[in-house]
């Protein structure tokens, strides 16, 4: 029955950037455009793009935007690229949410860093790729992402990722995956000679690593709160 109650349709909707409303040239230019094709603009729906707009956290600001557009026979119906706070205020002002929007705080996992959630709204986190040898004394941190190294990781180097770590070369330094607490993160390497491996805070130092796995391609995972090393 629900299929009959809700029907899908695609509409063309104008998008107005929030910053343009503040521009004194905006209203005269809009009026000029409408004068040229009044039928197209009459009661046309408008979505307000809040990308990079810090304001619009009060309902009165949405009312003001609605009023400006109303003067030009346009009808504000929703927002996009809104922060969770803006989205909530917009909902209070009776405005719909159009994708893309930042995810609601309640929907994102508490382990995700807020920065990742905001800057990468709907796409998967990008993998950090390192193609040069990671030299002793160097530290590389893939924040909120996987880390792929296609060269050797030297003793005394440290590679850290909130996600998984892949090393297509000898892993001789330290590797810390799931640094943000992700217990499902894993470490893969084509030659295990590591000084230390860690997943979500659980770690093994070199002498605790199984000697029979040393020098071999392995993956390391957290199983029942224990780090396990298995040959690939």
């Amino acid at each position: 029955m629900a299929g009959n109650l809700v029907q899908g349709a695609v509409f063309t909707v104008m998008v107005v950037r929030a910053g343009m409303l503040r521009d004194p040239a905006f209203e005269p230019e809009l009026a000029e455009q409408i004068r040229r094709s009044p039928r197209f603009f009459l009661n046309a729906p408008v979505v307000l793009d809040l990308k990079a707009a810090a304001e619009f956290t009060h309902e009165s600001e949405f009312a003001e935007a609605r009023e400006i557009l109303r003067r030009h026979t346009l009808s504000l119906i929703g927002v996009q690229n809104a922060s969770p706070a803006q989205l909530q205020t917009a909902a209070g002002a009776g405005l719909a949410s159009f994708a893309p929007n930042a995810p609601q705080p309640s929907r994102s996992s508490p382990r995700e860093s807020p920065r990742t959630a905001l800057s990468l709204p709907s796409a998967a986190a990008k993998t950090r790729l390192v193609t040069q040898p990671v030299r002793s004394g160097t530290q590389i941190y893939a924040r909120g992402a996987d880390l792929v190294v296609t060269a050797a990781v030297s003793p005394g180097a440290e590679i850290i990722a909130d996600g998984n770590i892949h090393v297509y070369g000898p892993l001789r330094g330290r590797a810390l995956a799931g640094a943000g607490g992700d217990v499902d993160a894993r470490i893969f390497c084509s030659r295990l000679e590591a000084e230390l491996v860690s997943i979500a805070g659980h770690y093994l130092v070199s002498e605790q690593l199984p000697p029979e796995q040393q020098g071999f391609p392995v993956q390391i995972a957290l199983v029942d709160d224990r780090l396990t090393v298995t040959r690939n």
């Binding site: 030299r135 002793s136 004394g137 160097t138 030297s154 003793p155």
Partner: peptide
């Protein structure tokens, strides 16, 4: 190992 460190510094 120290050489490795120096190579890293040269690169950065």
């Amino acid at each position: 190992r120290d050489s490795d460190r120096i190579i890293g510094l040269l690169a950065s």
